[in-house]
Simulated assay, not measured.
Amino acid sequence: MSGKQGRRTLALERLFRVSLVLKGLDGLLEILGGVLFIVVRPEQLDSLVRILTQHELSEDPGDFIANALLKASGTLTVSSSWFAAAYLLLHGLVKVVLVWAVLKDKLWAYPWMIAFLLIFIGYQSYQLITVFSLGMLLLTLFDLFIVWLTVREYRIHRHRVSQESAR
């Protein structure tokens, strides 16, 4: 392997590891969010959002994020809260387990990681079509990038394992 190609490979491997750690942290935050949806009642969340956005809205009544948060918290029901909790807990748990397994070089985890990310990308794409969001677009592009990196790393690890077993 040439020096330039070796540096590129090493950089991509590091980028893959950093991306996985970010996905794992995202998964932990989703688990925390899911737990919060279980323990905090919708009306408590609505009150908290009103308190947190009050100052911003007094300065800028048209603030997009503050108004979106208020609208979302005001329409939150017990059933939607339970759905959000289940979704976040499942999504976060799957991410954390698969990220841990891939970081531990468990070969079985790579295809599972790819499959689950593709399922989430499909759902995110549906969300983008129904209600466009720049945040969702960026998340979807990041997930696509991680899928590409995961496929690449899976091929490298699978090739290495097959070479080691041939010896």
Rank of each mutant, 00 (worst) to 15 (best):
V94I: 15
A115H: 01
V94Y: 11
L134K: 15
D105M: 09
W100T: 12
S133R: 04
L88E: 05
A115M: 06
K104M: 05
Y110V: 13
P111G: 04
H91A: 06
Y126H: 06
A101F: 01
V97A: 13
Q127K: 13
T130S: 11
D105I: 07
L118R: 03
L89D: 00
S125A: 02
L90K: 02
Q124P: 00
G92V: 06
G92A: 06
P111T: 07
L107N: 05
G92P: 00
I129T: 08
F132K: 09
V94W: 03
Y126V: 01
A109K: 09
Q127R: 13
T130C: 03
Y110R: 07
L107G: 02
A86V: 14
Y110D: 11
W112N: 08
V94L: 11
H91C: 09
I114G: 09
A86T: 13
F120P: 00
L107I: 15
H91T: 02
W108Y: 14
A101W: 00
Q127Y: 09
V99Q: 05
L128N: 12
K95A: 12
L89Q: 01
H91P: 01
G135T: 10
L88V: 10
L118F: 05
L93N: 11
A109E: 07
M136I: 12
Y110S: 04
P111V: 07
I119A: 15
G122F: 05
K104A: 12
G135C: 12
P111R: 11
V96Y: 00
W100G: 08
M113R: 12
M136Q: 08
I121K: 06
Y126F: 11
V102C: 04
W100K: 06
M136W: 05
V94Q: 05
M113Y: 07
G135P: 09
L117G: 02
K104N: 07
G122M: 11
A109M: 09
M136E: 14
V97D: 02
G92H: 01
M136P: 00
T130A: 14
K104Y: 03
M136C: 12
I119N: 11
L118S: 12
L90R: 00
L128Q: 04
G135I: 15
K106C: 14
A115G: 04
V99C: 03
I119L: 15
L107S: 11
G135W: 11
I119M: 15
Y123R: 07
K95L: 09
T130I: 11
Y126I: 04
L98Q: 01
H91V: 01
F116T: 15
L90S: 12
L107V: 10
Y87P: 06
I129F: 14
H91K: 11
T130N: 09
